[in-house]
Design a protein around this nucleic acid. Sequence first.
DNA 1: TCACTGATCGTCT
DNA 2: GACGATCAGTGAG
Length: 213
Amino acid sequence: MTSPRALAPKPSSKRPPRLARLRRGELPPDAEALARFLVGVTVVRELPEGRAFARIVETEAYLPGDAAAHSFHGETARNRSLFLRRGHAYVYFIYGNHYCFNVSAGDAGTGAGVLVRAGEPLAGIELMRARRGGIADRDLMRGPGRFAQALGIDRSLDGVDLCAPGGLWLAAPLRSTGPLVASRRIGITKEADRVLRFYELGSRFVSGPSRIA
DNA sequence: TCACTGATCGTCT
DNA sequence: GACGATCAGTGAG
């Protein structure tokens, strides 16, 4: 199910874990494969107050020609980053309140991506709590809007290269990933039956009703 | 635990 | 002017 991936050195209780930046060549070119690959991957955010990072536990793939994808009607100022070569951030604003974080997939011009729907906080948890209003740790990143809010992700990070040093980047998984489960995507009306959502079985940080999760 | 609803505003038609 | 890859709050079972 999961492709073999290099694991970063085991985190020690004394020292912070060493984060190994992902290279673009490690990212599967296809959006669905990338969505599976990203479950377990570490998202690192460099903030003025310090570093925060989290483990991705839930993703959704949006493919070329997919009526539910923002790229479906072609490239616009809003979705331009979705058409960048794989491994770039596509951040959009939704429902007047929330940002959602995607990783672009495919070659330049493809218009595919992976929505990061939920994460498990690993470090910088105090920073996340401060941004999320001190709610339960389980809910810090349970949902795409919450994930972005916890890490302070907004449109200023749209188009950022996630395989290069900067404010937001991807690192190799810090521990092995449990079994992956696939389901229908959440919150869409078009192509709603396609099974393109992936999450780690048993994770308490996965979003959505428990009967799907 | 789940279903329902209002809030809120950028983007596109 | 309508819609949307959401969320928090509320109330019912």
